[in-house]
Design a protein around this nucleic acid. Structure first.
Lengths: 195, 195
DNA sequence: GAAACTGTACCGACTGGTCGGTCAAGTTTT
DNA sequence: AAAACTTGACCGACCAGTCGGTACAGTTTC
């Protein structure tokens, strides 16, 4: 049998990538190639035709995920905002928005952390992290303020991983104040930190 | 062949638990029963005698891990400290102390997140999280301050997972200021948060 | 324009190997 | 002797990756 439907190879490839993400999210990293293939309407042989090995498939899934997150942050960049802290604000908003759907956030985080056990993927993640940190560091905010704000955002976004819910109004309030700190970092810096 | 050495069954059990943690930390959740058993100086059959299934073994490992973390927090409780925020301070210190060995922190987090893919373990983790959150909420601090402080601590402790290093002096400074906020929550609350 | 040829996309039976769990038998402790 | 403990050969399920094929879509030849 030849091409199953009027589907282009690129479509198939993407379908496989999507299916892999979905299946791994529910069945863990031990998901079967056969499972993933079926889910994409393809046989295992067809999958292997597009991705030479399971590792290669998972690496591509990770790459897609990281790219999606980066796009998410970019989409939160305010075009009218040119003040220092502009990127940090987008970062915070991107991290705290999905906090309203903790179940989904948990699945995504679990997926990435599972994938990170593959050395090649861990390298990708490390590189991406480094790039984010560099951009954050160059965002024009005092290091201490930037670190507080991004750490808090990281904390909220990782909370669902341990089963905590992050939907309450106190989280919205926190987001609001973190954003405000990036607008007026002096608020934080001028506090009487004396011993 | 019977008992290998003058080791008591309880010792063997503990050795198996330790070996499981160690092997899984390096080889992932797919670590072999045989591997774990050998590492503890026991055969696979011997392992199964003590833990009926791999799931049961992993569940015990998770339980041990969670207990260890709780003990870690407890060990950071200052006996002379009776002011509000006492528990929060211990929590922050417990989370930021291992931040000085990010590699180890990463392995531990990876281990727990791997284990969390087992439903029974996920339940354990959820229950533990809930208990921590309840204790933090009852610690006498304004919700907003407690949330900021613990979120930031969570963020720092989860950073190694993505490959970030958390050894710099700016992290020590952050810890210092978070602790200080718990002593004087009014610092945060009295900031001009006006729109 | 049709027959012959070529390359891409895909199929699914099969192989080689891994691993969780069983079990009969042996050894030590009580 | 009974109970507790440990062994390692073995079974069966599962699974990644291989491989010989099939089916279409061009392309070339006559």
């Amino acid at each position: 049998m030849g091409r199953t439907a009027g589907r282009s190879p690129e479509d198939t490839r993407r379908a496989l990538l999507d299916a892999a993400g979905e299946v791994i999210r529910t069945r863990g990293i031990n998901a079967t190639l056969d499972d993933i293939a079926r889910h994409a309407g393809v046989s295992k042989g067809g999958l292997i035709y597009h991705f030479a090995s399971k590792d290669e498939l998972l690496r591509e899934v990770a790459r897609t995920l990281l790219a999606a997150f980066r796009a998410e942050v970019d989409s939160h960049l305010d075009p009218d905002d040119t003040a220092p802290g502009r990127f940090t604000r987008a970062y915070v908003r991107a991290l705290l928005a999905p906090a309203q759907d903790p179940a989904a956030a948990r699945r995504s985080l679990a997926l990435l952390s599972q994938l990170s056990t593959i050395p090649a993927v861990a390298e990708l993640v490390d590189a991406d992290t480094e790039r984010f940190n560099a951009e954050l560091a160059a965002d024009g905010l005092p290091t201490d303020v930037m670190l507080l704000v991004t750490s808090a955002a990281d904390g909220v976004s990782s909370a669902p991983m341990w089963g905590a819910s992050t939907t309450g109004p106190e989280y919205r309030r926190l987001e609001d104040r973190l954003i405000r700190l990036t607008h007026e970092p002096s608020l934080w810096q001028s506090l009487p930190w004396s011993s």
